[in-house]
Design a protein around this nucleic acid. Structure first.
Lengths: 339, 339
DNA sequence: CTCGCTTGCTCAATCGATGAAGCAGAATTG
DNA sequence: CAATTCTGCTTCATCGATTGAGCAAGCGAG
């Protein structure tokens, strides 16, 4: 068995020795500001070549330690199990790299304690900036960051301490509810209140969506049935149980519903298939979220898709401009075409 | 407007001054080995309290620079847009944290150049270990790591330089193809060759799955139609175009098909809905991958789900044990129950 | 009272990169 | 020709944490 030689990594000192020069010359050349430091093109080329040959790699820990800015940008995100957060993370990484920043991401599984721990860990790694996505307690995170002198931005859920970028939940929910109500009326000839399932009653997004849900009912002259507003949490099991509970309680179910995320929809659909409650006819659904396969599930589902590119543009504009006015930027979501 | 004071972060020197002691005592206490360093419980408590009060946070860059191991573990992953990679990343993070490691993840969007760049960036950040998930050129990454004396493991796609953990693609594809063939025979009363769509012909997984696909055909006494093996890439658009191409060429399409991932399935389904080619009857599908909403798409779809928990257990067993024997561990995927 | 051991700390070097300050020698200016 | 400027480097302190080595005080044994 081959012993893994603890290959001493090449440093600028090794290169300096090989090039017969000083470490600071090497540093100047490799960090690209050799013109400013008045190193000759000849020496610069020699050092560059040697670095290449020796497979030199900068030690970021040393570099960051010395510099004032780390150029590391952190993001915490609740889950990776849906297209919304997946695209947020993927685009965040790409945009960070475009700007010469190194992105680090942590998934906190909606666990408040883990969120705090993750934020602290990122601060320990000297992030220049932290984006709290869908955090349960964004203000707590903002406080921790501000104590360390680190900028923070909220994404998806707003906070009151730092700028926030969120979807326009009210407008999205209003339009989505309108459509579902209209679909129900078209099919069944009468207007009836919808069921609302999923989300946390305490979070801003859910309450704004409920507000949109109510507004659309009011507009249509349909009274909201308060017992049909089930903000039971996002997890599929919770949505499934909520469906079970309400079905047992009422013995029957409304012909239309508003589901607060694809994750909740997973539970709702599971229940629909298992219970046989809607065996004859699919209910009209509206989902505040988007997934390509959900879109294929049938023509009884309307979706609203959050505009991730525009949301992240707004986030990076705040970061790039250094703005720290306390504002909440609302990005209109996209109403998907059905069929 | 409030000026953001560049809050000088508290260091062990600040705490030492406050406690009337030395930085090395503070370091010993806060790093937990004060018993070994013979610091009195009294002083330890005082320092701990002060650290708390001052909101002290360890500077990891300095700490890592000094230590020999960074306790940072890296992973590169192709995409975040499906449940498979999403759960890999989520569980990887959790398992890393359990072990006191700090996970950093980069998504490379199947771009070979970005893979290399990302690997180098991770080495610059002194990762102790790098996991290359679904890399297009795992051996290249392994070489870069070995030059830096860093351990590497391949996940999802195998390489020849470091240990690999992958699904048992042959067995999974064999069983999946069997089922689709059987479903077709049941419905149409005759055995006919299936269509294979998605994946890269050059990658190990795809070629193993094609081998399983062939083996199942051979078993059933059905000749494989070579013009129906379309390893066109994973992207939805590529799968959609492949479908379009083959439909135009043949004028008709087989009643059953093997789709190489949910991502490819997205394109296939799109085509099916748009073309109306299967308007009368859904084809029997087998998908080498899993997604909850695909599972609800109908009873014409069989799925094979890769066993992420077991795969990651294997990865961390390799890492924890320090094993570096050159082996490929194959984890049997799970055949999902239909309906 | 002295020797040796334990206790409880401090000192100083170190990790690798960075950049302000400085210093020779060459080139230009008055 | 002396004075100044420019060129092309080198020296050294620094970032914050870690750790081997060392030192002083206290204590018990002989």
């Amino acid at each position: 068995m081959k012993r893994s030689i603890p290959t001493k990594r090449t440093t600028i000192y090794d290169l300096a020795e090989l090039a017969g020069t000083s470490a600071s010359a090497v540093s100047a050349v490799l960090s690209g500001n050799w013109k400013k430091r008045r190193i000759s093109a000849q020496l610069a080329e020699k050092i560059t070549r040697l670095a290449e040959e020796q497979g030199y790699a900068l030690n970021m820990q040393a570099s960051v330690l010395r510099r004032e800015r780390s150029k590391i940008i952190g993001m915490i995100v609740p889950k990776y199990d849906n297209r919304y957060f997946g695209s947020i993370v993927e685009q965040f990484e790409a945009m960070a790299r475009e700007r010469g920043l190194f992105p680090i991401i942590t998934c906190t599984r909606r666990d408040p304690a883990l969120e705090i721990e993750a934020a602290r860990a990122m601060l320990s790694y000297q992030v220049d900036c932290l984006i709290a996505t869908g955090a349960t307690d964004p203000d707590r995170i903002a406080d921790i960051c501000s104590a360390a002198g680190v900028r923070a931005v909220n994404l998806d859920l707003p906070g009151s301490r730092v700028p926030s970028v969120i979807s326009d939940n009210f407008a999205g929910a209003l339009e989505l509810t309108r459509r579902v109500l209209a679909n129900c009326e078209r099919e069944f000839g009468e207007k009836a209140p919808l069921l609302f399932v999923g989300g946390r009653g305490t979070d801003h997004n859910t309450s704004e969506r409920v507000r949109g849900f109510r507004a659309a009912h009011a507009e249509a002259g349909v009274p909201v049935d308060e017992t049909l507003v089930l903000t039971c949490g996002y997890a599929p099991e919770k949505a499934e149980n909520a469906m079970k509970g309400i079905a047992e309680k009422l013995g029957t179910l409304p012909r239309g519903m508003f589901v607060n995320s694809t994750i909740s929809l997973e539970g709702v659909m599971r229940w629909i298939r298992r219970s046989g409650h809607y065996a004859d006819r699919m209910p009209h659904l509206g989902c505040f979220d988007w997934d390509p396969f959900v879109a294929m599930l049938g023509d009884h589902i309307e979706m609203v898709r959050q505009d991730v590119p525009r949301m992240l543009d707004a986030v990076f504009e705040i970061i790039d401009s250094g703005a720290s006015e306390l504002k909440v930027i609302q990005i209109p979501p996209i109403v998907e075409q059905t069929g």
